[in-house]
Design a protein around this nucleic acid. Sequence first.
DNA 1: CAGTATCCGGAAAGATACTG
DNA 2: CAGTATCTTTCCGGATACTG
Lengths: 124, 124
Amino acid sequence: MRGDSETTPDECAVEIAMEVLGGRWKLAILKRLLTGTHRFGELKRAMPGITQRMLTRQLREMETDGLVVREVYREVPPKVEYSLTETGRSLERIADLLDDWGRWYRERHRPEALGGPADPVTSP
Amino acid sequence: MRGDSETTPDECAVEIAMEVLGGRWKLAILKRLLTGTHRFGELKRAMPGITQRMLTRQLREMETDGLVVREVYREVPPKVEYSLTETGRSLERIADLLDDWGRWYRERHRPEALGGPADPVTSP
DNA sequence: CAGTATCCGGAAAGATACTG
DNA sequence: CAGTATCTTTCCGGATACTG
């Protein structure tokens, strides 16, 4: 997804968005950072499924893409804080909608993936 | 992305959405189908970049995920039409937002990818 | 026309171990 | 604490050829 740089003239811009948001963890990280600045370890603890290597890579890509700011405090022990840029925060609505939609979809199409089914919803 | 079936209890639902919308072509196809029912060949012609194999695969996955309906007319020559389900149409707003955001992001962060830069926007 | 059938390269993702 | 460094696995996406 990243690095194709083909950008055919008639492609619709969702592909640009998917280049930036694609991957398994970007949006999850973004949602975390929407609650405020976080340290690397905090993010890691908050997302048990991700490996250190993946978290580092995703954060660096998001930094390159202008979504997050990485601030290094030259202390011992080291401390690095991540926060969203304005561009990153501009995704809040989309991230929320995707989250809502995902929840709704899971209820509607994957009821087995639920621990205790809540009250069913009929539109997202 | 597909087939992990892990779904850790505390994962946020954006991952569900990304499972369904992920991949390079899903949203582009969805946007096409939002304009109405289309035949396989129409979709293929409308998206010069995609291969037959990919188009078939993406459409089948979207069918499995409950986003599209595939209707086969037993004629000669064969005719197959694809349209969106209600679930598929429920993504319209999100697809539009992603498209808008992608356009805005490209202007703001990748001006070199534009033929003739339009009037700059300051918020998505 | 609308697909399958094969084969393939490379990126994405993960496991594990080590370090300033 | 916050990373690198390797190694391995998975699988996405594409090229090409063939078919009911």
